[in-house]
């Protein structure tokens, strides 16, 4: 073999090897999606009261009997909140109907001064008619975020504009209103969907 051919061949072989290794690594990572997101012990939520965009309360009762994918944000957020909602729109579109039927998607606004339930209604339904928006008093929001190991802060920048910071994780709450899993950002539809389905598949309501 001539030198260039040898080099080319060994290049091709190493590319193939790297490719295979990467593929195998992804495969093994894909065998148990969701497991790393699940809490060691699901955490039952305690009473809380927020207001949903339909002006009915969002409380423990409303979480029971359904799986809930919930995240924190605010409607004056132009970049990351709509990006997450766009990913969730795709999750909703790609879930089998029987699973979609007992899944609710919730955006909790941590900016209650600017986000009324009415404005949330318009905002979330732009992404998907079935999505739920909710907010509440600062006190109620603080207590609720704390239950979900999340946080937010409201500040004012030098120009007097409100600055809202909030946890980026997405939370999964099981049909017994237990905080069940936590998905870290960035959020991608395929990953959320795969992890969610895997967690549901391995779910047994009786085991902690």
């Amino acid at each position: 073999m001539t030198q260039p051919v040898k080099i080319t061949l060994s290049l091709i072989i190493s590319i193939l090897l790297i490719g295979t290794a990467t593929y195998l690594a992804q495969q093994s990572a894909n065998t148990t999606p969701g497991n790393e997101a699940r809490l060691a012990t699901p955490k039952p939520l305690t009473a809380f009261q927020l207001t949903a965009h339909d002006l009915k309360p969002l409380n423990i009762e409303r979480l029971k009997g359904k799986w809930t994918l919930l995240f924190f944000g605010y409607t004056h957020c132009p970049d990351v909140c709509p990006t997450t909602l766009t990913e969730l729109t795709q999750v909703a579109e790609q879930l089998p109907p029987e699973i979609l039927n007992n899944t609710q998607f919730v955006l909790v606004s941590v900016d209650p001064q600017r986000d009324s339930p009415e404005s949330l209604a318009e905002y979330v339904s732009y992404f998907n008619e079935s999505f739920l928006g909710a907010t509440g008093s600062i006190g109620a929001l603080t207590a609720f975020t704390r239950q979900l190991d999340s946080k937010f802060s409201l500040e004012t920048d030098p120009a007097g504009e409100p600055v809202v910071n909030h946890s980026s994780a997405m939370l999964l709450i099981d049909p017994q209103a237990r905080y069940y899993a936590r998905f870290k950002a960035p959020h991608y539809a395929e990953e959320i969907r795969a992890q969610y389905l895997a967690l549901r598949n391995s779910y047994s309501p009786t085991t902690p």
Partner: peptide, 15 residues
């Protein structure tokens, strides 16, 4: 111009 940053599991927008 803004930058979205992730710090400590928090989303933040910085000018």
């Amino acid at each position: 111009m803004h930058r979205t940053e992730q710090h400590d599991g928090m989303h933040k927008m910085l000018p």
